[in-house]
Design a protein around this nucleic acid. Sequence first.
DNA 1: TATAGCCCATAAGGAGGCCTTATGCCTGAC
DNA 2: GTCAGGCATAAGGCCTCCTTATGGGCTATA
Lengths: 301, 301
Amino acid sequence: MPDLSSRQVSQLPPLQAIRVFDAVARHLSFTKAAGELGMTQAAVSYQIKVLEERVGSPLFLRRPRQIVLTEAGQRLAPAVGEAFAILGQAYAAARAGADGLLCVTTVLTFASNWLAHRLGSFQIAHPALAVRLETSSRMTDFAREDVDIAIRSGGGTWPGLEVHKLLDADFTPMLSPKLAASIGGINEPMDLLRLPILDPGDIWWTEWFSAAGVHSHDLARRPGSSMGAQAYEANAAIAGHGVAILTRALFKAELADGRLIQPFDLVGDDGHAYWLVYPEARRNVPKIRAFRDWLLAEIAC
Amino acid sequence: MPDLSSRQVSQLPPLQAIRVFDAVARHLSFTKAAGELGMTQAAVSYQIKVLEERVGSPLFLRRPRQIVLTEAGQRLAPAVGEAFAILGQAYAAARAGADGLLCVTTVLTFASNWLAHRLGSFQIAHPALAVRLETSSRMTDFAREDVDIAIRSGGGTWPGLEVHKLLDADFTPMLSPKLAASIGGINEPMDLLRLPILDPGDIWWTEWFSAAGVHSHDLARRPGSSMGAQAYEANAAIAGHGVAILTRALFKAELADGRLIQPFDLVGDDGHAYWLVYPEARRNVPKIRAFRDWLLAEIAC
DNA sequence: TATAGCCCATAAGGAGGCCTTATGCCTGAC
DNA sequence: GTCAGGCATAAGGCCTCCTTATGGGCTATA
């Protein structure tokens, strides 16, 4: 049972009535105020009556052709107008501000290998929208962080979130042409084992070699650190430090210009993918729609 | 049918939710805000949710032990606080102001012959209450004039108004002792007709002479102006200019000190009286109660 | 002086906003 | 591991607030 003795309650005016009062004081007409507020004249009359009872004295004098403020009304009106001006402005600003800044959190690799190149076109298409891009490996919790949209990898089922698949997170070995040439070219999967394996503990390696029919039980014993992001491993591979297992869609450019080669057509796929996600309840927020629509269109290209 | 396209409606925030937001932003706690507002935590949660949907973005981040404002919330909170401060102050001032000034309108005679002597004791008893006294012969319309209490004479039935009888408006002739002596004293009613009759058209004269068994059909033909207020006629009578027909209760002092004499015990009474009146709906307004209680106590003396 | 028109007041009735109760979930502390 | 603190959610009911309909008072125009 709440404590009804709270003074705050009785000290604040009935807000709906105050809003109506503001409109009436500006128009000096119940009928016109009703028009502005989108309600009937009767409702305005009712609210003014309520407020007059709460204030303890009439706020308007009812003259034949018009109404005028009483002394009490004259004292109240300017302050009410000012308060609503502040409130309206702040509220509008909050809405606009909410519309004007889009916070996206994404896994590093997607940001650097996909988004970075294309984000410019989004900003050109939506000049009023500022984008704040954060990269994080943690899975963001929308209730706990100030984020509008996330791009994450995983199975694609998160309750309460709307999801759109972006890319399949397939995987296949890649390396620099120079490294491949250093052992006379890569002809069969087993050749890879003669080279340094980047992040050998990655489950993807085990699955890919298994699919290729190669025993790779010694992988786990190899030294090497998991760098935790394909982008890092890709850089190492481009630099010729070893073989990385990467998602094709994220390295189209590197494959196209020859910085990386994909020696085998065989790609693994554990069903994971990259997803665009955001809270279901916010699916119709303009900036979120804008980003989603743009991203899905770009992906489809 | 109201015009629902009015922009104003959608541009203003849901006020109840804003009020709750203000409390939550100050406490940074739903539970504490609920305590301040005198409602349950669930209600606060509901209102914040409503507001967040209307603003289009979360206003608070839900952290384990506490909540924090999002960027949008931080933009909104200070302005909302300021607006409510203005509003609360103005509202309190309006209530206080409404309590601090009492407007009384009264018929002239009652003011000058009864109220004027005694008003001082009311103001001493209620030092915080300023009294504005207006005299008017018109019957005041509470909806049209900025008046709290009226004192009027009449039959005592006015719909929508609370009435308290103050004095019977009886009437009997009065004149100055000097004028009476000028014709050797007043021994019977007919003697009065040998003197100038003040306001001879007054219905009271007709009624009184009739009750006294005197034919006075020539009264109407006498010259003389109705001054419209007993106070004026009384002054004329005191100055020896004629005989006036007055209400005893209003001229106790003059009768006591001999400025006027009442030659006959016979008093007329047409059922009219002086009444204290105010709108029924305002019977419990403090300043009105204070004045009513004081006035009725004084009358009873 | 009669009539039309404007504006506010009031009554009756209904929809929905808003609050409460009850419960669940999550997290951090002991 | 259990408990406590704090927010979220579902179900249900009250009561505020709005609408429709009507009336009254005044002004203006004929």
